[in-house]
Amino acid sequence: MNPLELVRAQPGPAFTVTLDGREIEALPGQSVAAALWTAGVTSWRSTRGAGRPRGVFCGIGVCFDCLVTVNDRPNQRACLVPVRPGDTIRTQEGTGHDD
């Protein structure tokens, strides 16, 4: 059983986005974070100070741990931003403004 089977989901057609240039599949309606989890990715940011990896923590837009660069806009909360066909997602280093 997986979550999609549990609720008998019939999602719309999957589409492709990229994470650091690598193609991954996403489903309509998912957040960027959900698409990354589905692709087996759980961290996509390194912190400003110690450069430690971070991903989803609160999942509802409160903690700002899941910040990511989407279509060249840094510091987007991956748990809130809906994933869209053709999105270019990039892991974010530090403030996101250096690269």
Partner: peptide, 24 residues
């Protein structure tokens, strides 16, 4: 507690209910 894979209980539930995904 800052390691990726550590999520809030409510966050795990929100991702599951809203996007039908689990972290592991």
């Amino acid at each position: 507690w800052t390691l990726p894979g550590v999520v809030t209980a409510g966050g795990a539930q929100a991702m599951l209910k809203g996007s039908l995904v689990v972290p592991g």
